[in-house]
Amino acid sequence: MKTACFFPDRYIAVMIAAVITGLWEGLVHIGILSPLFFPPPTVIAVTLFRWLFNGKLTPHLAATLSRALTGFAVGALSGLAAGLTMGWSERVRTVTDPFIAAAHPVPKIAVFPLIMIIFGIGEMSKIAVAALSAFFPMAINTVTGVRQISPLYFEVARNYGAKPFKMFTRVIIPGSLPMMLTGMRLALNNSLTLTIAAELVSAQKGLGAMIWLSWETLRTEELYASLIITALLGICFNMLVQFAAKRLIPWQKGIS
């Protein structure tokens, strides 16, 4: 329910953020907070703007983006294919279920050293770990999506004489699309997380490398600035999927 409040809730959140930032700035200046751990927000902002205009940020951002997105594309597409096959065929599902169940809970970053041995320390290993982390949520959510389609709709389609191809394009795909998009959101988040984690360990370029370098050189304001960029990237990814959901599933209550 919306009441005629002088400050809508959204503005209250913005005001709280502003107050905290102001307090932070003030506390550093009067010497209560150490600028070594908490560089004043103004300094962080200046760092961000410097990066934006001196071109230092672009190559790092580009490296992270291309790794995360390539990994996402490879992982999510194969996850989608796997998920649809598993959702479609009971036999495939029975055979593959134990493997998925065993492999899914393994934290993918733990596999990274192994992946580096196989793919080398170049781009491939980072893309591979991102792809691996995108594969599982995509596959699992797609299977769930196909499985939760009410049997009624399969029956209706069959009753109207739908052939397998039409069953696929008119029932299975649209029926599982909401879950697929959930899988996509998780897959995108995972590939970003894993890309940055991999970059922390082994990269010259990328947001992860930036974060690591600012820690090594104890430039805390750069650490904060890289974190802000990373957070913004994550938010962008989520908004992208939300936008896609709005366009692709207009029949879902509550989305449109």
Binding site: S150, L152, K166, R170, P174, W251
Partner: peptide, 23 residues
Amino acid sequence: FQEHGLFPWMTVLDNVAFGPEMQ
């Protein structure tokens, strides 16, 4: 069917045109 027989992901038009489409 008693209820909920229409495909929720299709507009009324696409639902009604489903038979001809399948044929």
